[in-house]
């Protein structure tokens, strides 16, 4: 019963055919999972299934033993997602966007106050710094940021939610090598200051294979099927080559 997210024999079909087929994954508390595979293999779809954005055609997804479609908002608060398209609200400021991640812990008045002025500045700055952006960004508008900066704002929003599990879809794509490492460390809660308690568990889809050693487990997907699922230490080159061919 200590598996956090469970995908039981999950398949997903849509108009263009099979997206995912017969996926069985069980993710335990504390695991750091790298999700790899070439573009279009189904990584994003898998993450969307895992956070409950879409529902499988067959099989079921469970979070803490509960069906993902029946979670209360309190339980949902525990799942944090970093979207590939970031999904920041372009019309709002950085600060307001970060606060949007904390809505689940506050009431309506708070959400209105957030729209009116920047509130919760201290907490926002803390998470902004954790994502390697200076505090001066708080008042800036999302539209004026570069894609790398946006990515880091999205990460701040993810962190402020204080999730138990992080599902991150290519969080490193828009970042340079140095930043990528720092962000990855933040997400994997390594070397960060102790006031920020990030999730113990995470699934992160990555393209850079050189970062794999930071993870405990690797899941590889090809054409909608899981072809690799092993500890990082057991990962073989031949498997990787197979995955990308």
């Amino acid at each position: 019963m200590n598996s956090l997210i469970e995908l039981n024999n999950v398949s997903l079909y849509n108009k263009s055919g099979i997206r995912l087929k017969g996926i069985n994954i069980s993710i335990n508390c504390g695991e750091k999972i790298a999700l790899i595979g070439s573009s279009g293999a189904g990584k994003t779809t898998l993450l969307k299934l895992a956070n409950g954005t879409i529902f499988p055609t067959h099989g079921e997804v469970r979070f803490n033993g509960l069906s993902i479609s029946k979670l209360t908002h309190k339980q949902r608060l525990k799942i944090g997602t970093l979207w590939q398209d970031l999904r920041l609200i372009e019309e709002l400021s950085v600060c307001q966007n970060i606060n949007a991640g904390a809505l689940g812990r506050h009431n309506v008045t708070w959400s209105i106050a957030n729209l009116i002025t920047g509130i919760n500045i201290n907490e926002c700055s803390k998470y902004l710094r954790a994502a390697n952006l200076p505090v001066s960004f708080l008042g800036r508008n999302i539209r004026d940021l570069s894609s790398g900066q946006k990515q880091r704002v999205a990460i701040s929003r993810l962190l402020i939610q204080r999730p138990e599990i992080i599902l991150a879809d290519e969080p490193l794509s828009n970042l340079d090598q140095f930043l990528a490492n720092k962000i990855l460390n933040t997400l994997l809660s390594v070397n960060t200051d102790s006031t920020i308690n990030t999730a113990k568990t995470c699934i992160i889809s990555v393209h850079q294979l050189d970062v794999l050693q930071n993870f405990t487990r690797v899941i590889g997907i090809r054409s909608g099927q899981v072809v690799i699922d092993c500890d990082t230490t057991d990962l073989k080159d031949i498997d990787l080559r197979n995955l990308y061919n």
């Binding site: 609200i89 949007a100 309506v108």
Partner: peptide
């Protein structure tokens, strides 16, 4: 509705998500 869904999935209730994600889009 992408943003709205994203906010909703962070575990916020309907009303708060709507206020935060939809108001800025309705105002224009």
């Amino acid at each position: 509705l992408k943003e709205l869904i994203a906010i909703k999935l962070t575990g916020s209730r309907n009303l708060e998500s709507l206020i935060t994600a939809i108001t800025p889009k309705i105002i224009p």
